[in-house]
Design a protein around this nucleic acid. Structure first.
Lengths: 242, 242
DNA sequence: GGCCAATATGATGTATACAAAATACAGGCA
DNA sequence: TGCCTGTATTTTGTATACATCATATTGGCC
């Protein structure tokens, strides 16, 4: 309660990743907290309280929240405060339909610009996911980082930004879902398939690979039945596999 | 210099469209100014100066600028200030390639959800454009509003937001371009073609209609030759029309 | 006992003030 | 004369203080 986040501390603020401004620091912190589930969708983010906890004034907190709004993680209700973005079933559907379009393009671009470095990063993330043994949050973080690496590899920062704004709230939303070991294995296999497409090891249609991957992600019929249908429809598979 | 933007003024703040907060007011104002060319791409936006001009404190101005960043109109260089988003040729290319994908989807969705109200709005905007007699800025504003109406009509707020973030800076960029009367007429005819597609009066492929429209928009070979090629390529037209 | 209203509390929105960093400018030196 | 350096100014970043609005609580009334 008496550790006022000294900004002249070279240890915490090691060069290269040092947040030179308090706002940037708070952005990182809140972002991590939201993705880690400390703040759940719909929760209110109290400026004063956060400022007190960090022993700083409200101003940098306000600006950090404003910046998180840009990333789609929080929403501002006028004179009511900031709230962690809460997604209903319809919103998940709307975002996902966009995701299919944008991430299909991202995969095509990333494949055409694949470098050994990027591929090594993806392989490394795959291995970490396959060897996963930790918490659900870690797993979600790895999954997200896998996709973000793909988005970065497109070389189109605007595509990257659009996908981030769309998908990061969705991941925050899904962080709280518990999935079975079986589904986890399925997801892994489809990540591997995606990686094969990206590495040029597979000639499968990128969109088809992505759709297969996505079908894995929304298996709760209660909430995502409409999306499941949407995902199945455009492929026009003879067999009606989910 | 002595008109401190009274927030208790019911006349300016007429119900329904009243900015209940200074920040919202400044956002509107700056947004309009940037789109109108008062601030040009690359210009620095001085907090103190803007605050002085409006006779308010810097805080709402800072927050407004932060919010404009969310909309992609300005960028923040740490401890250097806010600058109007400046787009180079490559960035225009990257944005446009995304635009094709997203707006094609938007047109499809809007067509499938078209209502008499929306159609009337589009018709009205078309008429205003056809009867246009004002400044270049007005023309650009009408053009943008036409497209934004389409985006709203998709019913997918995330698609709408993505297109706004991508395209509004692009329009701000192009506001300064002077075009000939001939090109204006061409653009009008293609807007009309788009409207026919949207209204279901034409069975033309939405993407093709959009591509035709876009080719009209980037006719400066010096700056957009690469984009022109990109736009031409996927259609695989036998004749090498621009 | 339950519903509505007036008050109390606490939140956001904004203003002012100060600190630190960046830029502009002037002077010294080669 | 041209470049570098040290100072001055300007600007952003943050803190504190106050005003306004939203929410919670309590009291009264039906």
């Amino acid at each position: 309660m008496d550790t006022p986040l000294e900004r002249n501390t070279p240890d915490d603020a090691r060069p290269g990743s040092a947040p030179p401004t308090l706002r940037a620091h708070v952005v990182r912190m809140l972002r991590a907290d939201i993705l880690a589930g400390k703040y759940k969708p719909g929760d209110r983010l109290n400026e004063s309280q956060i400022a007190r906890e960090l022993n700083i004034s409200r101003i940098p907190v306000r600006e950090a929240l404003s910046q998180l709004q840009e990333q789609g993680l929080v929403v501002n209700r006028e004179r009511r405060g900031m709230f962690v973005m809460d997604l209903g079933a319809e919103e998940v559907l709307q975002i996902s339909s966009l995701r299919i379009i944008l991430e299909t393009e991202a995969i095509k671009l990333a494949r055409s610009r694949m470098t050994p470095e990027i591929r090594a990063q993806l392989e490394s993330l795959m291995e970490q996911m396959e060897a996963w043994n930790g918490t659900l949050l870690d797993a979600a973080a790895l999954d997200l980082e896998f996709h973000r690496t793909i988005w970065r590899a497109t070389g189109n920062p605007y595509l990257e930004r659009a996908l981030n704004t769309l998908m990061v709230p969705l991941f925050a939303h899904r962080t709280l879902e518990h999935v079975s070991q079986e589904i986890r294995r399925w997801r892994l296999s489809h990540h591997r398939a995606l990686l094969d497409v990206l590495a040029g090891l597979s000639d499968a249609d990128p969109q088809e690979a992505l759709l297969t991957h996505l079908r894995m992600s929304y298996t709760d019929p209660e909430r995502y039945s409409t999306l499941a249908k949407t995902l199945s429809a455009p492929t026009a598979k003879p067999d009606g596999q989910i």
